[in-house]
Lab assay of single mutants.
Amino acid sequence: MGFKLLSKLLVYLTASIMAIASPLAFSVDSSGEYPTVSEIPVGEVRLYQIADGVWSHIATQSFDGAVYPSNGLIVRDGDELLLIDTAWGAKNTAALLAEIEKQIGLPVTRAVSTHFHDDRVGGVDVLRAAGVATYASPSTRRLAEVEGNEIPTHSLEGLSSSGDAVRFGPVELFYPGAAHSTDNLIVYVPSASVLYGGCAIYELSRTSAGNVADADLAEWPTSIERIQQHYPEAQFVIPGHGLPGGLDLLKHTTNVVKAHTNRSVVE
């Protein structure tokens, strides 16, 4: 069995187990497998329904001669939608809004960016022009300005110390501490036991640490421990890039980060 097929099978099995364990909360999309990078042309966006009122959005972007996937989250909030992270750029984010209108038909009224990198804030200006209120932590807003990236308009308070959590509509926002970046936030959907790890969490097929220019490698494993301790009931975990899975993604990420750190020390 090929690795790609095995990865998709694991996603399907995880979703099936969740649907059985929580039949009222989960209505997993039966329309197909989780979209992969090879299936999404740059400039297009796919939506994948995880649970009743919960979707991931998947886009792709060219970077350094390669094409990478990027995940975000959409959560229903009454007759409105909360968006977590842009679709990595203005063109993708405009396509995301169009796809949401086509498939869901509810307005996106608020959006949260989970850290300051372009795959999370690139497209904020498109959201703002569409009347979406954009939010991020003060740290993310400051770092985005320093980096020359787009800056969300509103500040999220109460997320300055490791372990801080605040309720934001249908989700809980959690600051686990520094990891992929010093400002990275985690998003949890309690009604569906869905954990969105953003770039602080890796997919299972990833074996290298990737972009760690703004990471705190020493603190990252401790931050992941905080996530595990705060959300032990999480059933569906979405990484910032690639295929979702279960809580095993947290341990896998820790292993990859520690291996990278150990290699760096040896070198």
Rank of each mutant, 00 (worst) to 15 (best):
A87L: 03
A59C: 06
M1G: 07
L10C: 14
S38R: 10
Q229T: 10
Y48C: 06
G158C: 05
V265H: 10
S162I: 10
I58C: 04
T182C: 05
I58N: 06
Y202N: 05
L204R: 12
H115W: 00
L156A: 02
Y34D: 07
L83T: 00
R141M: 13
G210R: 05
A136H: 04
I84T: 02
E33G: 11
G131A: 07
Q49V: 11
A165F: 13
Y231H: 05
I238V: 09
D52W: 08
V257D: 01
V112M: 06
S181H: 00
A213T: 11
L185H: 02
S30C: 08
A178M: 07
Q103V: 13
T153Y: 12
Y135V: 01
D248C: 05
D164S: 14
L13N: 08
E80F: 06
E203L: 04
S22P: 13
R206W: 12
N92T: 07
T36E: 14
A59M: 04
E219F: 06
L9R: 15
H180I: 01
G197I: 02
R46T: 07
A259L: 09
A165P: 08
A165E: 12
G245E: 03
S27I: 10
V257Y: 03
R263A: 14
R120N: 00
G210C: 05
K8Y: 15
K258Y: 09
V171K: 01
E39R: 11
L24A: 11
A192E: 10
V265E: 14
D64K: 11
V45A: 08
I40W: 08
T253E: 01
E101D: 13
A165Q: 13
D119K: 00
T222R: 12
T207W: 09
E157N: 13
S30G: 15
S7H: 11
F168T: 01
V37G: 15
S139Y: 09
E157C: 06
V212R: 07
G246W: 03
E44L: 08
K102P: 06
T153P: 06
V212I: 10
Y12M: 14
D79C: 05
Y202H: 08
R167V: 11
E172Y: 04
S264L: 12
E157M: 13
G245Q: 01
G122T: 08
A51N: 10
L156K: 04
T14Q: 08
A218W: 11
I58W: 06
A215T: 07
G245L: 02
C199H: 02
L243Q: 15
T153F: 11
T261R: 12
A165V: 13
Q103H: 15
T86N: 03
V237W: 03
T134N: 01
E225S: 12
R128D: 12
T134A: 04
G2A: 09
A218E: 13
S31W: 11
V265C: 04
Q61K: 15
G105S: 11
L82R: 01
G65C: 04
A178W: 07
S223Q: 02
L250F: 08
S56P: 09
T14I: 09
M1A: 04
W220A: 03
